[in-house]
């Protein structure tokens, strides 16, 4: 009962943010595309027709250089991009939260872990991703692995700083005084209270991952068989006459817009949630 009430309260507060609603609508649109791709897409994205057809009634956005329907590619592309983003942010979120909780609560462990995190954070992210991706066999799972490895330290640092503050709260001390063991305090009193911050962090991480995946694919370091938006851009970009004809308008632009709008939607949602978590920001990002 109260969980439903809580959700209602949350939704009522979230509704206040116009940006948040816009973001949610865009994201839902792409999620629908991804989930129902086989029903929405007019063709199988791997099926080949006559190459380089211009947009027409058969192929709304034309076909690419090997005759695949570009619209279908885009729709299936939502699957790849969103899946990677979701998977990475959840897994690196779990790892980052676990380490963040432990390192915030146990000082010695935290001290040593933070030096490792420092090392990770000192490395510029995208160049490293490019280097690793170049040496590993390009596949979706390798990309996911790299993103997780690079994503958790940031989450850990953020969660840790929150735990450091939470663990000195009176209710944590009060729990300790009634004989609560450390694990209980962490799970029951600290974890639920870092959760709002974590959600914001996951959303931001998801948008970072989408950018990184698109960049890598665009540079040709992605999975060549996966139908991601970045990959569409890559194949279009290497096609000889792409910019001296109108081709880019239906081959490149839609994929670019898809990436842009997905990231925008995540950013908007992130803003809205951040306002909820930190009421001091309220009204600063309103349009």
């Amino acid at each position: 009962m109260t969980e439903i009430k809580d959700l209602n309260r949350f939704w009522n507060a979230y509704k206040e943010s116009r940006l948040g609603l816009i973001g949610l609508a865009i994201l839902l649109f792409f999620v629908t595309l991804a989930v129902f791709a086989p029903y929405i897409a007019p063709y199988d994205p791997h099926e080949m027709f006559k190459p380089m057809e211009h947009p027409g009634s058969d192929h709304l956005l034309g076909t690419n250089d090997i005759g695949q329907d570009i619209l279908s590619e885009l729709i299936y592309g939502a699957r790849v991009s969103l899946f990677i983003a979701f998977f990475v942010s959840v897994v690196s979120g779990i790892i980052g939260t676990a380490f963040g909780l432990l390192s915030g609560y146990f000082e010695m462990f935290g001290f040593f872990l933070m030096r490792i995190v420092d090392a990770f954070l000192a490395i510029p992210r995208l160049p490293l991703i490019i280097v690793i991706a170049a040496f590993m066999r390009p596949s979706i799972w390798n990309l996911i692995f790299i993103f997780i490895i690079l994503g958790w330290p940031i989450t850990t640092r953020i969660i840790r700083s929150e735990v450091l503050s939470l663990r000195t709260r009176n209710y944590v001390e009060a729990a300790r005084m009634v004989g609560a063991p450390d694990t209980y305090i962490l799970m029951k009193h600290i974890l639920p209270n870092v959760f709002p911050l974590l959600v914001v962090r996951l959303i931001i991480e998801a948008s970072h991952v989408i950018i990184a995946e698109s960049s890598l694919s665009f540079l040709g370091l992605g999975d060549p068989t996966a139908k991601s938006w970045g990959m569409i851009l890559h194949y279009a970009f290497v096609y000889p006459t792409i910019f001296i004809s109108d081709l880019w308008m239906w081959w490149m632009l839609p994929a670019g817009l898809c990436i842009t709008f997905t990231i925008l939607s995540l950013t908007f949602i992130g803003y809205a949630l951040e306002e909820l978590v930190n009421p001091r920001l309220r009204g600063m990002t309103r349009i």
């Binding site: 709260r169 009176n170 209710y171 009060a174 005084m177 009634v178 004989g179 009193h189 639920p192 209270n193």
Partner: peptide, 15 residues
């Protein structure tokens, strides 16, 4: 459990 503390700010002492 035999010794307890009441803090200054009651709302902060409750989760």
């Amino acid at each position: 459990p035999r010794m307890q503390m009441i803090f200054q700010d009651p709302e902060a002492s409750l989760n």
